[in-house]
Design a protein around this nucleic acid. Structure first.
Lengths: 154, 154
DNA sequence: TACGGTTTGTTCAAATTTGAACCAGCCGCT
DNA sequence: AGCGGCTGGTTCAAATTTGAACAAACCGTA
């Protein structure tokens, strides 16, 4: 299981690097960044809590907590869902957008430098295809590209 | 950054599956399992705390805590280090070995079913090579094979 | 041998994460 | 309309993780 060991170590270390860079560069944690990023690519920059939790792969209570944090610092806002009385939508504020725009380049640079750049173009496509397969085998639909978020196999 | 998104989602989900299986099958958490696994492949089934922390990629205090947990349930024992008065070695107990032997097959089955099996043999070698490169770029030596755990570039 | 700078492992407080319990609102069926 | 089952989100307690602070021990040098 060399593959597994290498994968595991690399992903742990990468996670650590990302946290470090993100924290230093913007004060965000990785989960928080993921929330902002997901919201920014959602229609109207907003998303239902449950859907968001599924995309970010975090528990419902975990999302409640982090959205609370983001709300405190003004990057996200909670809005009642029009179609469902009990629903809550997390909305990216304009400040949230600014923060993301300011933070994203550095983040992507790290991801690229430490992960992506180690793949050849062919390997990268291969890896992407496989990881998508892996994810969907575990019951998540990874949107192929900028397409809207479909219900998948929910 | 489709690749990154796919990778991220897949790894989160995989982690979740692993935790689930491990917990159900043996009561261990993933970090705990990693500690046992690392110890089991170390010479004399023992390792210095700091070295172990580096291999598992966890903070020193995090390791102290988890080794404490493992000690409580009798899978690991703390022994003074002969060569260094302040040092502590974590040692796999015979019960720890049994637990690992009992748990490993199920764990590996999950890893295989959800990750490894989605790769062709060539892709797998490719991925392993790349992940090793990724890890060492971030300052970790991933042992090439079943060789003893050398000091690497420590 | 004594000294300064490092390294080792633990302790501590603070932040985060999860699952269970919970209430409110939705939906299909009668 | 009314009932029963389910879903959505929050609250809560418990577990885990991290970095900083700390005491002990190592090492090279005088």
């Amino acid at each position: 299981m060399d593959a597994w060991l290498a994968y595991l170590t690399a992903s742990h270390l990468l996670e650590r690097r990302i946290e470090e860079q993100l924290k230093a560069d913007s004060g965000l944690t990785h989960p928080q960044y993921e929330i902002l990023a997901r919201l920014s690519s959602a229609p109207d920059q907003r998303m239902r809590m449950t859907e968001l939790a599924r995309l970010v792969v975090v528990s419902k209570s975990g999302l409640t907590y982090q959205v609370g944090q983001l709300e405190k610092i003004g990057l996200v806002e909670r809005v009642a869902c029009p179609s469902d009385e009990r629903g809550v939508m997390a909305v990216l504020t304009s400040e949230g957008v600014r923060c993301l725009e300011k933070t994203a380049p550095g983040h992507l640079a790290v991801v690229r430098a430490f992960l992506i750049d180690h793949f050849s173009p062919e390997e990268l496509t291969s890896m992407t295809r496989i990881m998508r397969k892996v994810a969907s085998a575990m019951g998540a639909a990874v949107p192929p590209s900028g397409t809207s978020v479909g219900p998948g196999q929910g």
